[in-house]
Design a protein around this nucleic acid. Sequence first.
DNA 1: CTGAGATCCTGTCTGC
DNA 2: TGCAGACAGGATCTCA
Length: 269
Amino acid sequence: MPELPEVETTVRAINGFENSTLEKIVIHNRNLRWKVDKELEALVANKKIYKISRRAKYIIIKLDVYSLMLHLGMSGKLRIQNKKDNFFKKHDHVEFIFKDKKIIFNDVRRFGSLHITKNINHHPLISNLGIEPLSRDFNKDYLHAICANSKLNIKKLLMDQKKIVGVGNIYASESLFLASVNPLRPAMSLNVSECYEIIKAIKKVLKKAIKMGGTTLKDFYSADGSEGYFKLNLNVYGLEKKPCKKCKHQIKRIVIGQRSTFFCEICQI
DNA sequence: CTGAGATCCTGTCTGC
DNA sequence: TGCAGACAGGATCTCA
């Protein structure tokens, strides 16, 4: 489900828990994308939370010695609930319990994961991640250098988390539409000015999506229960056969790497 | 090393 | 209404 803007929105919704004490974690189902560490509950009991942040699509919860890493996968979401409201929903897998409230991790498809580690940067799932797209270092020269060395098409390259993090299926399609670049273009065929258009488009799309609370297509809700309204700004994603907003030609849907990809054949060359 | 394809899981929607 | 098949916002693993 969640790409960078949805994860960022979720982090902002729970960062009020910074400086709170995590009384305990209760795990109802350890069988997430990876089995949750047996020691995890014991290591986090009654620890203060120093910082809640985001790296790529991971939510990082910094405790004293350890940090928690939470990935929402395709269908994961958090829900803040009063502790005394003791109800459950189907697919509630983990509860983070505080004095008066709790944060619940719900994930239908269980592609999400929860990890504990001493040094985030050394964790194998983090250490190989690529550049943050909203950082200054993500510029046209950087992208052009990556493209020049890749045999992937540009859509696949943008979604490769080892190269650029946070861009998923929705925002890859949307960014390429804004940049007027065909998703099937071999990355190595792109010149510097096309790379410039792409990085501008990615930054613009992600920033706007964060501002609007992410994209709720079906079931994304932030931890405070709010929907994301970026859906209203989608130009191509999920709009097969609808008229292109620039030229009115029908939006086309194709499959790239087993993922639906939407674009305008006329505008995106 | 790179890249293509299968795979984990559950739910919903479409078409016959 | 039932049922098969496609599809869903991710990303790792295996194999060539």
